[in-house]
Amino acid sequence: MQVSREELLHIAKLSNLKINDEEIDNYRLNLEEILNFADIVKNANVDELDETIGANDNFNVFREDVLKEFEDREALLANAPERERDMFKVPKVIQ
């Protein structure tokens, strides 16, 4: 499996990651090597098999949508890199 520089940059963009010029080849070659190994799955005889979504068989566990107040608002907000009063602060989005 060959991965081009353009392809790697596209994937990085989808991941919200910036890869420096000098790092690109390193990540690209790692990805190629790992994908070459992962290609084994293509040889597995699994055409008849369903996909396993989780280790358990119980999907879609439902409950009532009950509102619960978190007891410590301040502890939640205290981790914000930037805040104003009880709000998370971000740069202006709409000019």
């Binding site: 992962a38 799955v41 293509k42 597995a44």
Partner: peptide, 18 residues
């Protein structure tokens, strides 16, 4: 990502069943 989902992710989930 589109184009590789079936070849890798879907196959891997089937391998999981195996």
């Amino acid at each position: 990502s589109s184009g590789y989902y079936d070849a890798y992710y879907k196959k891997a989930q089937q391998v999981r069943t195996l």
